[in-house]
């Protein structure tokens, strides 16, 4: 459960990137976050994790996102970064996957077992002992998603999870997202994926949420999408 109340943020004074955001994302909901390049999707996610300071009130599971709650908030929220290169910092994929759980006090053997479970779920067994600097861009993205899933967070934020993935891996990720029971917020330009996975969509433009509603309705609204530098999902364009 994530609650925004009149949340605002600006990188440079006087140039707000997000303004007056008020909305809530309920437990177990899967929400798509769409908007043109530079609309503020990544910024919004970083606010939720307390990586950037915000105005207004922002709560995760009832915890205000502020210094004293940061550790707890970050324990609950898993964040797949837009750039996987920055997500992985241990030498091998496995090391990276056990890093989080071990930090939260899980014994190494148990953490490895969990890592193996996640790898199997995503069909990534072959990546287990590979070196992070020697895997391809898409493999790295899959590995980054795996490191976050291995932490079993109760809220998952994904920034462009399907970018750089081949069709099979993209499907795997879509299926994995669909199976999750956690609260999910997924930012992407892959509107077909959003349509497949999300029940609700937020459209971000000019620092505001300009549309918030059922995915089916928003993603079929050609006029609305085009007004905000977007297009219909490919699967709906051919109709």
């Amino acid at each position: 459960m994530i609650v925004f109340e009149d949340v605002g943020f600006s990188y440079e004074r006087g140039v707000p990137v997000l303004e007056g955001l008020s909305l809530s994302i309920h437990a177990g909901e899967c929400v798509g976050l769409i908007g043109a390049n530079g609309a503020g999707k990544s910024t919004l996610m970083q606010l939720v994790l307390g990586l950037l300071p915000h105005n207004g009130s922002l709560r995760v599971d009832g915890l205000e996102v502020e210094k004293k709650n940061l550790a707890e908030v970050r324990r609950r929220v898993g964040y797949v970064l837009q750039d996987s290169d920055n997500q992985m910092f241990m030498p091998t994929v496995l090391e990276d996957m056990v890093f989080g759980p071990c930090n939260y006090g899980m014994p190494r053997a148990e953490a490895e077992a969990r890592a193996d479970e996640v790898l199997a779920e995503l069909g990534l067994e072959a990546l287990r002992n590979r070196y992070n600097h020697k895997i391809s861009g898409g493999e790295k993205r899959m590995a980054a998603i795996a490191t976050i899933l291995a932490m079993r967070p109760s809220v998952i934020l994904m920034d462009e999870p399907s970018a750089t993935l081949d069709p099979v891996n993209r499907r795997t990720v879509i299926r994995a997202i669909g199976r999750m029971e956690q609260t999910r917020l997924i930012a992407s330009h892959d509107l077909d994926m959003i349509l497949d996975t999300c029940s609700r969509v937020l459209l971000l433009s000019g620092g505001h949420v300009v549309a918030d509603g059922p995915a089916e309705a928003i993603l079929r609204d050609r006029a609305l999408l085009e007004a905000h530098r977007m297009e219909l999902p490919l699967c709906l364009q051919r109709l």
Binding site: L49, L51, A71, R74, R75, V77, G78, Y79, L81, D83, D85, N86, Q87, M88, F89, F99, G100, C102, N103, Y104, T147, M151
Partner: peptide, 19 residues
């Protein structure tokens, strides 16, 4: 990048010592 990597570590429960 160093900053982002460090955030990525914080997000996964890193405090000030390695496990």
């Amino acid at each position: 990048r160093a900053q982002e990597l460090y955030s990525a570590m914080l997000l996964r429960g890193f405090h000030d010592h390695f496990h």
